[in-house]
Design a protein around this nucleic acid. Structure first.
Lengths: 135, 135
DNA sequence: ATAAAAATAGTAATTGTTCCTAATTTATGA
DNA sequence: TCATAAATTAGGAACAATTACTATTTTTAT
């Protein structure tokens, strides 16, 4: 089970590191494929899972039914725009105290939490009507 | 489009109200079916969505890839046990200030947030090894 | 160079969910 | 009470995201 090197995995990780949005497996596939035409979607999924397991990237489940991936593994939170569906990094103070608040009076052990914020992003607030759902 | 009454919808809602765990569509289907043998899975999904839209129940996306439903629509948080997968209600103080913390220095408008806590629940902490995944 | 282990491409299968259609139920009101 | 229209249903097909399978190709250590 010793990890072996693979060009595909390198490309996938490099692609993710070059983006500040949070692409889905399909977006990774579509893009990496441009330079690696016979890349397989299964390979993308397998490597995204593998990289998640080794902690090199992280998997984001923001509730839209599709997994997003983030090469920035430092602890931070995400905002999901309900207009354009973009997933945006938030720079904000630590809120780990919510775990203490949640743990008070709870008989189990709280190991972590997942939080995402939603609303309207800056560009959608400025922008007119047209929903310019990006990808 | 005026809502009409339906026995199936009543049964589905009644079933949900009688449970304090947070069943998935399939669990609802399996159970309501016992008293309503020719219930269709599509009907369950459609009504769960409908009830969610009218605000009578709420949909929970805890990151396990399956939607859970909750007849308790009062604002509260959930804990997901990573051992038995149970989704448990938490009684805890308000943490809405996290939205202000997140909003500071963000150029969009934050309308809400979704948070769930995870760890080991009380009964799994007491219990021996065997993963007794319930449903 | 060789051979074992790991990874790949391509495709099939699975899962959770939504969509479709003809038949049935529900609400209305003559 | 009966007819009618609108909403809902059962059942199954369709769909989207993801995982599993398998023969072939790469990688890495000898």
């Amino acid at each position: 089970m010793a990890l072996k090197h693979s060009r595909q995995r390198d490309m996938i990780k490099a692609f993710l590191m070059g983006r500040k949005d949070h692409p889905t497996a399909d977006v990774v596939y579509m893009n990496v494929r441009k330079e690696f035409p016979n890349l397989s979607l299964g390979t993308v999924y397998r490597n995204l899972t593998l990289l998640t397991e080794t902690g090199e990237i992280s998997r984001l489940r923001v509730g839209d039914g599709v997994d997003h991936f983030d090469a920035d593994t430092s602890p931070h939170y995400h905002f999901v725009c309900t207009e354009c569906d973009r997933v945006i990094d938030l720079e904000m103070d630590n809120i780990d105290t919510i775990q203490d608040i949640a743990g008070a009076g709870f008989d189990g052990r709280i190991a972590g939490h997942v939080t995402y914020f939603y609303g309207t992003c800056g560009s959608c607030m400025k922008a007119p009507q047209p929903g310019q759902k990006s990808e």
